[in-house]
Design a protein around this nucleic acid. Structure first.
Lengths: 343, 343
DNA sequence: TCTCCCGATGTGATCGATCAAATGGGAACG
DNA sequence: CGTTCCCATTTGATCGATCACATCGGGAGA
């Protein structure tokens, strides 16, 4: 009763059709497809011509069935999804990974592990070998999915240093600590001495490292560390606003703020404005990320750029290498100070 | 020399292992897997127990090889990617689709058709049957990829009414025209009579429809249409800013502006502020989208909310139905006026 | 009691690739 | 001239599912 082949799709040509067309055997065609070793130039050319003529495209399912590879990778986002989906950097990362993979003809499967049910399903899916490896975006510590994948020996590359996973997990990250150092040094170079900080969550590597960089530079410059100058947020705009209010209450003489994300920095700007402080004259503000929010803010944010395009490219490179049998690796990429109006 | 099986992944159990464990044949296991018709309750239970015990997961490659289905769908984004990746709605859409598909155990492949090369590769990939259908995000007209897919009979569901594709393409869209009508009616209800509009690109369905709604309401209210009150943008913040400047020059007596996107509305607010006009006292501003930008703006934007969560759910529903053999369908979903400060 | 039918189950063929072993045909060498 | 290699190629087996067909068994109906 149901006609599934609506639209009239024809059966696509197989390797056998190509072989017949080229006057060679399937084996030869297969060899041409996979690098062309042990193939004469004549056969090579005949096969390529036949492929072009027939419009042949390899059936990946048949290939995967016997090779055991899937020639695809997963892009796994574990909780909390909201944070990432609102984060413009996430887009850049996702896009970069997709494109880098496409260059290797490797499809990307998007996987969102939100609910418990989804997590179970995804874990099964991955460990069953339906993807060859996983690009992991999960900043939070003790991620059970990631741990399970690691234990199952699935090639894994995290974005940002994963907390609480064994040391054998590859990751690619920006040099958060060094970026933070650059920014705080910059604020000090403006003559500020009461430098506050709005940190990110301390269960994320970025949050920890950026705070560490802040402390290091203060120590190195001989500026006393003052706990009242430290408040923490969760990377959201609202938390930046709230943080700045607390900061102003605890340390009214603050003359600069290093904010661990641009989104939070937007909130900080709003709070300062409401409090009647001028930026950067009264209080200099430095962000982190160089997201679109940085340019949209007024005054435009001085911030730290993370090389997201390079991060995605490196994640893919490391993952493919690991799938190819190489050992896990970690890559740390340098950040860049972008001076605008706010500091 | 290269040890590909680093980490020691074992061969996963096959349907044959399950059959042996349950004391039945492969055929019976297969039948249980696919709906359980013509299977006795006893066998049913034995098989399920065996599946649980062995941790069996179906090998999708083997299945796809014989069924000809891939049980996966593509999420295709054609140019221009920047617009979408910066658009928060895109995130909601992508997430919604992924989750809706996950509920049906269907993986989503992310496909970006940016360069000519990528477009060719992706077209081949899809027409070769590596996905069963495609969720299409492509606002612009005359998309060659989409047209090729349609011609090849690939099940296709577009987000927003596709321009220039045959009528046989399914799509799901918000009721742009009605949303625009609601907003312009709202502006008129505030007593404004010199209502300007910053439109979107006129080669996108949204751009066309929103402008049409604007004209309809003016006509219905007996307000004369004035060409000087119409400027066009490209949905970017910058184009909104530029558009507002042109508007102020052409029609200084403008007392309200309907802007076809929140991002552009942000730019409009900035330009108005610079020109010394108060919002909403001097000029009321209405946006479209209800994106995060709407709340971030000051004053907060009155805008039209598009039901993105429902849109994604419907896209998936229609696509799966179409893959199952049903005819193409179109779905139009209602929008909602969200009143805030700017109008 | 004997058919007939139908629900439940088993079995070999099949999908389209790769893999591994076998084959064929020179060139190099003694 | 025969043997050994090695490169190029063919061929049957294989991956793990589903499919189509054969088979079996028991209850209804004559």
């Amino acid at each position: 009763m149901t006609m599934s082949n609506t639209g009239g799709r024809r059966r696509p040509p197989t390797i056998h059709d190509v072989a017949r067309e080229a006057g060679v055997s399937r084996g030869t065609v297969s060899r041409v497809l996979n690098g062309g070793h042990y193939v004469s130039p004549a056969a090579q050319e005949a096969v390529n011509a036949a492929i072009r003529k027939t419009g042949y495209v390899v059936n990946r399912h048949a290939r995967s069935l016997i090779t055991g590879r899937s020639d695809s990778v997963g892009f796994l986002l574990t909780e909390p999804q909201e944070r990432f989906f609102e984060d413009p950097n996430f887009n850049v990362l996702l896009r970069g990974c997709t494109q880098a993979l496409a260059a290797h003809d490797v499809p990307l499967l998007l996987m969102l592990a939100g609910t418990k049910d989804e997590r179970r399903r995804i874990t099964r899916y991955i460990t069953a070998g339906h993807v060859d490896g996983v690009l992991l975006v999960s900043s939070h510590s003790g991620d059970p999915v990631a741990e399970e994948l690691r234990a199952a020996g699935v090639p894994l590359v995290a974005c940002g240093k994963p907390i609480g996973l064994g040391s054998k997990v590859s990751y690619v990250a920006a040099d958060d600590r060094d970026g933070a150092r650059d920014m705080v040094r910059h604020l000090l170079s403006l003559g500020r001495r009461r430098v506050g900080v709005v940190t990110g969550p301390q269960d994320t590597p970025g949050g920890v490292e950026r705070l560490a960089g802040y402390r290091e530079v203060l120590a190195e410059a001989g500026v006393a560390f003052d706990e009242r100058l430290v408040v923490s947020g969760d990377y959201s705009r609202a938390s930046g606003e709230a943080g700045a209010e607390r900061l102003l209450a605890q340390a009214p003489d603050v003359d600069a703020v290093f904010v661990a994300s641009d989104l939070m920095a937007q909130g900080v700007l709003a709070a300062l404005q409401r409090a009647g402080r001028r930026v950067p004259e009264d209080v200099a503000v430095g962000g982190f990320d160089d997201s679109p929010a940085a340019v949209a803010a007024s005054p435009e944010l001085t911030t730290i750029r993370q090389p997201w395009d390079r991060i995605s490219a490196e994640m893919v490179r490391v993952l493919l290498a690991q799938i190819g049998g190489e050992d896990p690796a970690t890559v740390i990429l340098p950040t860049e100070l972008v001076k605008r109006e706010s500091a």
